Simulated assay, not measured.
Amino acid sequence: MTLTNKEKVVQLLKGLETGDTSAYTYINPQKYVQHNLGVANGFDGFKALMSDLPKGSTKVDVKRVFEDGDYVFTHMDYDFFGPKVGFDILKMEDGLIVEHWDNLMEKATSPNASGHTQTDGSTEITDRDRTSENKARAASFVKNVLMEGQFDKISEYITPGTTHYIQHSPFITDGVEGLQAAIEHMAEQGVTMEYKKNHKVLGEGNFALSVSEGEFAGNHVAYYDLLRLEDNKIVEHWGVIETIPPESEWKNNNGKFGF
């Protein structure tokens, strides 16, 4: 039976938990490029990571999986050197994985004040005919609101009211009001949150994943934001912020982004 690209990616990621090496055949060993800066480049780097994992120490729960052209991207609940949530992006070429990016953060110990965890919520992919439109809408939101700080335009993207926008960040409550309150609170505490460059927007149907670079609390970070859209409005958000280590600590020279 021929597996889809989504199925190949899920099987490979589940192999982190099971130790099953059969999915290694879904990686092109001559072309594999690694953007996780804590892992050495290439197929040998991937195999070294697998061998370093203590047996039975890793758990992998794929919450969502999407496909956009040559890219498959997943939303994950991990136990990977400790409980984490994250996103993985894998580029496919002729049915084989040739490149990998990810973004991970520590998993919160409890739901946020609105009762949501970092990975629960909607999973159904709809509106596949609106994929390009929704990706463009997500890119516009990131550019105008998050990068340029035009918060007066936020209601163009998110309908006001706590019932119209579900937030999965551990520290932010539902609604555009919750987002605005969090931004104001961070400003009062002197905590900076800057989106400086948007590197990629991927999507399938009503979901779009934005990959950005910036600063958070004085640290160089990668922002991965998964948005669910309905009728041209953002109605749900999941996010992961990961600090990018100094270049002296990188185990490969490919950079965190490089799309």
Score class of each variant (00 low, 15 high):
254 N>M: 03
89 I>W: 05
138 A>F: 06
225 D>Y: 13
116 H>Y: 08
62 V>H: 04
205 G>C: 04
8 K>R: 14
184 E>W: 02
97 I>W: 00
85 V>L: 02
172 I>Q: 06
48 A>H: 09
153 K>H: 08
167 Q>P: 03
110 S>F: 13
197 K>V: 13
216 F>G: 02
87 F>N: 01
166 I>W: 04
39 V>E: 04
158 I>P: 07
147 M>G: 05
221 V>T: 05
85 V>T: 11
162 T>E: 15
176 V>C: 09
64 R>V: 02
149 G>M: 04
135 K>R: 12
142 V>Q: 00
174 D>V: 12
158 I>S: 14
17 E>M: 10
207 F>V: 02
17 E>G: 08
69 G>K: 04
206 N>V: 00
176 V>I: 12
30 Q>C: 11
178 G>M: 03
163 T>E: 15
153 K>Q: 13
226 L>C: 08
22 S>G: 09
11 Q>E: 09
44 D>C: 03
188 E>A: 15
36 N>K: 04
85 V>H: 07
42 G>V: 03
236 E>P: 02
64 R>W: 09
233 K>V: 09
233 K>H: 15
84 K>F: 08
143 K>C: 10
110 S>C: 07
175 G>E: 10
86 G>H: 14
101 W>E: 02
150 Q>P: 07
23 A>G: 06
197 K>R: 11
139 A>Y: 03
91 K>G: 04
17 E>H: 14
161 G>H: 14
44 D>G: 03
107 K>A: 03
176 V>S: 12
157 Y>S: 07
71 Y>W: 15
185 H>K: 13
204 E>D: 10
215 E>Y: 11
25 T>A: 01
131 T>I: 11
81 F>G: 12
199 H>M: 05
259 F>T: 08
66 F>D: 12
34 Q>C: 00
216 F>T: 00
98 V>M: 01
56 G>C: 05
147 M>V: 14
142 V>P: 09
253 N>K: 15
212 S>W: 02
108 A>V: 04
139 A>I: 02
131 T>S: 04
26 Y>D: 06
131 T>N: 01
12 L>E: 11
51 S>N: 14
78 Y>Q: 03
8 K>H: 06
22 S>A: 09
24 Y>W: 10
165 Y>T: 11
23 A>H: 02
212 S>Q: 01
230 E>I: 02
153 K>L: 15
96 L>M: 12
223 Y>I: 12
50 M>A: 09
148 E>G: 07
227 L>Y: 15
219 N>F: 11
86 G>S: 10
254 N>Y: 09
26 Y>G: 06
222 A>W: 04
242 E>A: 09
255 G>A: 00
147 M>W: 00
62 V>M: 01
110 S>A: 15
186 M>L: 08
4 T>I: 00
44 D>K: 14
236 E>L: 00
15 G>E: 03
190 G>Y: 14
45 G>T: 04
54 P>H: 07
212 S>A: 09
176 V>D: 08
164 H>A: 14
232 N>W: 11
